[in-house]
Computed example of a mutant assay.
Amino acid sequence: MKQSHKDDQYEQTGVQDQPDKARMLLHSIYEAPDKSFWKIPEKEPNSSHPGICWHVDQDTGKAVMFKGTSQQPKKARYLISYAVLAPNESNGLDATTYFRVDEPRLPRVRQLELMHHDRLRGSLAAHDVAEIELALNELKGASHVDG
């Protein structure tokens, strides 16, 4: 029969802590394939659009993503549905990008984890986050309330 020692209870197992997925993915910008991720027809083979991970729900294993495009909406009344971000060092965008905040996509967190390694473009700077929040508030009508 083996006796236990106090030192044996604290042996290292070699298991590393899991990264905080929400912190890793939140406010990240990915270059997501049109056909397999956004489920839209490809204009050309292997085309893609940027997307922002806005929220991560680890309980359901889903994330909230907003799809971006470099094309400005043709009618000004549709601009309320978009957050407009200029490229900067942090976000990794190539051009001014319009993110559609009224049509969130709900991909699996696991899918974003896989994209994090080879499709990460950057992350939102504080002023980018403020721009998205402003667009969401305008969409809800919060900017039309007198305070």
Score class of each variant (00 low, 15 high):
Lys75Gln: 14
Leu26Tyr: 05
Gln71Arg: 09
Ile29Thr: 02
Ala32Gly: 08
Asp34Met: 12
Lys140Asn: 09
Ala130Ile: 09
Glu103Gln: 05
Phe66Trp: 06
Val64Tyr: 04
Ser70Asp: 11
Asp146Thr: 15
Ala126Val: 14
Leu79Ala: 03
Pro104Lys: 00
Leu93Cys: 03
Val15Leu: 12
Asp94Val: 11
Met24Gln: 11
Thr96Cys: 02
Ser48Val: 07
Met115Arg: 02
Arg121Ser: 08
Lys2Val: 15
Lys35Asn: 13
Leu93Val: 00
Asn88Gly: 04
Leu134Tyr: 13
Ser123Met: 10
Phe66Ile: 04
Met1Leu: 10
Leu25Lys: 00
His55Asn: 07
Lys21Gln: 05
Gln111Asn: 08
Val129Leu: 06
Thr97Gly: 04
Ala63Arg: 02
Ser123Asp: 08
Asp8Phe: 10
Arg77Glu: 15
Asp118Glu: 15
Asp8Lys: 08
Asp17Tyr: 10
Lys39Phe: 10
Val129Pro: 01
Leu134Ile: 12
Ala22Thr: 12
Met65Asp: 04
Tyr78Arg: 10
Leu79Cys: 05
His116Arg: 07
Thr96His: 00
Phe37Tyr: 03
Leu79Lys: 01
Glu44Ala: 13
Tyr82Asp: 03
His127Asn: 09
Lys75Pro: 08
Asp102Pro: 04
Thr96Glu: 12
Phe66Cys: 02
His144Thr: 13
Pro87Ala: 03
